[in-house]
């Protein structure tokens, strides 16, 4: 049976569907994708506060990207704010590939440390790095200053 989200949001012929995004995070996913009205030629559909019953949840967000596929860095960033998201690659209306996002052991260069006094925020030639202490909800600890990162979505690079 069709998911109600698929009925409300038109299917795409080719592209990517990012489903099971944490309720309220769809706009942050768009921020990660870096898309705006001036730099994209295909359509994007967004469903927010869409009913779901997966894992006992009531609501989710969903984003459909026509004619776009995501690189590994982008998928890793999405995992930081939507750890339960699934990515489906659509080709000619069919799901050609489907996988769940997953954070690795470490996050490197995707997000900056929220501690302004951390050495990674002081102009040194170093990429911010974090240990993944918990995947869902994501909890990251700075490799350098040892602080737990606050507000992941506000600190995405």
């Amino acid at each position: 049976m069709k998911d109600i989200a698929d009925i409300k949001i038109p299917p795409i012929r080719n592209g990517t569907v990012i489903d099971h995004i944490e309720n309220g995070q769809a706009l942050n996913v768009l921020k990660i994708l870096g898309v705006n009205e001036n730099n994209i030629d295909s359509s994007i559909s967004i469903g927010m506060h869409v009913p779901t019953n997966k894992d006992g949840k009531k609501w989710k967000d969903i984003v459909k990207l026509e004619d776009m596929e995501l690189d590994e860095t982008t998928v890793s960033k999405i995992a930081l704010i939507a750890p339960e998201a699934t990515i489906s690659i659509i080709r000619d209306y069919y799901i050609a590939e489907k996988f769940a996002v997953k954070l690795g052991e470490k996050v490197v260069g995707l997000v900056r440390c929220s501690n302004p006094n951390c050495i990674t925020n002081k102009g040194e030639p170093v990429l911010p790095q974090f240990f993944v202490e918990n995947r869902n909800p994501p909890r990251l600890r700075c490799v350098y200053c040892d602080r737990t990162l606050l507000n992941i979505s506000d600190n995405l690079i």
Partner: peptide, 13 residues
């Protein structure tokens, strides 16, 4: 000894 947090880890790197 350094005023910024994480300086020693960077130095160790």
């Amino acid at each position: 000894r350094h005023p910024f947090e994480g300086a020693a880890r960077l130095a160790a790197d």
